[in-house]
Design a protein around this nucleic acid. Structure first.
Lengths: 402, 402
DNA sequence: TCAAGTTAATACACTCACTGGAGAAAGTAA
DNA sequence: TTACTTTCTCCAGTGAGTGTATTAACTTGA
């Protein structure tokens, strides 16, 4: 349902604009905000007063004079509230307390032992975590839950998660009822691109695609500046796009799916075949001749050491992946393409090859202004993603009534 | 630049809501609008008065009583203003005067003879058309221009049109300067999906894709309820997505592009090869044994008459096209897929085959609620599209300052 | 050193769009 | 005919933003 216009709406809209200005450009003076956004100084003063009373912003000393009275600067207070991020990935639950800048304050990682009771375990662990952090629940703006698989954000349901055998679980409802807090629920790839967009070091444009290559292959999509999830939360199933009509049949029912060529399990199986033939590769020695120890990290290390087999594997991977990426570009015409996941991290050779292929194969106008790069996040990627999902919604004005 | 909140903004927003209610649900009473949208009756009365003064709505008699005073109904006046639609397609310019419901009042089709002077011809022909229709320019809300190729809507430029050799033409500027009217510029496929969304007989959901198969293969995309054009207007280049890594090289630099398998030129060339081998097909006889007369319409006719070769050709086309469509579904997860263009029109067999293939190959959750259908528009599709581009923007409230 | 000019922030009267209540107008139902 | 509904308008009241006057604080240059 759409909101109608009234005085509350004006104030709310302007308050969002002022808070945004302080978050993005703070410390900043009242008069600078007024000039930048065409608001009267009076209005800005009054809104800043409100924001101060709620604790979101505070005075931050005196600025430099530009020929008159020195400005009193206002800054954002990221620690005035906190939020809880939860990530469910494979068989591991991560719970963290973060501030309004997505900085992790406390974190806890719990392995899931009994798969049948995942949901019960999650609820119990969050409960315990909330008790442990001993922070006033009044100051908690909500819980953000991210997980693999297909998630229906609108309905607040985990639609389909094959690994944990979750089908149509109304998790948002469960969490809201138990903890009496607002809850956000989203897919992890989506969360990652939101993190890049809102919290990344380098700015992300209005049309960005984030590709992860790990156990599976997925894509997070930002279009028109918004997250795009599709009709039932299944958008970005990049791993199941066909690049070869005559290719390998896939479990999903389709043929020649990208995932069967470039995901880690696919690469691993090819490495094994090679080793079993008795042929030489650094990958084997880096893993101490134990095939179970071969990991994406070792593969990447071998590539960086220019092991011929590893390099050849990357060439092929780049070739397959580029075909998929070119399709993406032709359909979405993004201006930023971000590569993440274990296979691509710290792997400049792969990135370079992909860029080379893509720029040759795609329509020129679509790659002219395209930037291809790796993710800027390190360790806390998961939690940063969870925070981004919540924060981008929390700090954005919307005409849709909630 | 984002708009700030003030009293004008509330009124404008509410006025849009009221006008929308009258357009969508009219004739309707003031009190029904108030109840439906949670506005006070006083506000509705006042806004309706404004709208009446501007001529957009008018009283439309007395409605049925529901136990009290009979309501005075308000209806939308589509003829209170007019707009000019222009379509540039292959070597033909179509210009039309339409009302606010996209009903064509007057139309003119002009062949373009000298390709070098396309732009000059367009400007001249619009000038002449405006004189001929003898309608007060005051009542013209703008000109909507649609064309093939890649169009940058934000910059108002035809970015790339290979057939007419247009590169980076600032057409919007040209038109605005010459006619002193607001101008909209968009790609024709985009226009078609907007027509389906806003003016179609059956409703289109918030995530829809429109595929046209004709001389080329293109896709118009609506996501989150908005038109999606991409970073530089090149989104939806569906024809240049790879479905076969080992396939036919394409002019675009890529390999195995869909367009080389299912576009009309591709089909035509296969029909010619077949006929030249001296083999029998209804297509040849329906074209009076003149290969130059073979058209998409004749092919479709042969399919409907169950000509074995034509049917086999459709089976193959469906197979290629389905692979491309499955990719689209996996990336966009739409809830409506609309097929248009000369090859698919009046061709239920092709539609059925595609639906069959797609439902088998795509992830189940992505096709569960998917509706695949043909376009609902007939003759005036081009002009309706042009009108849709303008009208959807004209009647939509936006927080972005213009 | 001090007056003139600038910039920053606040105080207050004013404007304007929405709201709610009073009341008129025009029906229905018993 | 009376009681009750529903539709619509009029009018005073509310509140958020605006412009102007005012105060505060600083820079510049004579």
């Amino acid at each position: 349902m759409r909101r109608t216009g009234d005085l509350k709406l004006i104030q709310e809209l302007n308050q969002f604009i002022v808070l945004d200005a302080i978050r993005e450009s703070g410390p900043i003076s009242r008069s600078a905000i007024a000039k930048k956004h065409n608001l009267s100084l009076t209005t800005v003063t009054s809104l800043v007063k409100n924001l101060m009373e709620e604790g979101y912003v505070t005075e931050a000393g005196i600025g430099e004079s530009s020929g008159g009275r020195k400005p009193r600067l206002i800054k954002f207070c990221p620690d005035s509230r906190y939020l809880i991020g939860v990530s469910l990935r494979n068989s591991r639950i991560t719970i963290a307390e973060m501030n309004l800048n997505a900085v992790v304050k406390q974190q806890k990682i719990i392995p899931v032992i009994q798969q049948e009771q995942v949901i019960a375990t999650i609820l119990e662990q969050i409960e315990r975590f909330l008790e442990e952090i001993q922070n006033d629940k009044e100051n908690c703006i909500g819980i953000s839950f991210i997980t693999q698989g297909i998630v229906n954000t609108a309905k607040g349901m985990i639609h389909y998660n094959p690994k944990l055998k979750l089908i149509d679980v109304p998790l948002k409802k469960y969490l809201e009822e138990r903890f009496k807090l607002p809850v956000w629920l989203d897919n992890d790839t989506n969360a990652h691109i939101l993190a890049e967009k809102h919290l990344g070091i380098r700015p992300v444009h209005d049309h960005a695609i984030y590709i992860t290559i790990g156990d599976g292959v997925g894509a997070g999509i930002v279009v028109n500046g918004q997250m795009y999830r599709g009709a039932s939360g299944g958008a970005g199933e990049f791993g199941h796009t066909t690049i070869d009509r005559g290719g390998i049949p896939c479990d999903c029912g389709n043929v020649g799916c990208l995932e069967n060529y470039v995901s880690w399990p696919a690469l691993y199986s090819r490495i094994l075949t090679f080793i079993k033939k008795g042929r030489q590769t650094l990958i084997y020695s880096l893993a101490n001749e134990d095939i179970r120890s071969i990991s994406p990290r070792i593969l990447v290390e071998a590539v960086n050491l220019k092991d011929p087999f590893a390099v050849e594997l990357m060439n092929e991977t780049a070739s397959y992946l580029s075909a998929g990426i070119v399709n993406l570009l032709h359909l979405f015409n993004p201006n930023t393409l971000i590569l993440g996941g274990e296979v691509t991290n710290h792997n400049p050779y792969l990135l370079e090859k992909i860029e080379e292929n893509v720029k040759r194969q795609a329509l020129k106008i679509l790659v002219e202004d395209l930037e291809i790069r790796q993710t800027t996040f390190g360790d806390h990627l998961e939690m940063t993603g969870a925070a981004a999902v919540l924060l981008q919604d929390f700090f954005e004005f919307s005409l849709i009534a909630k």
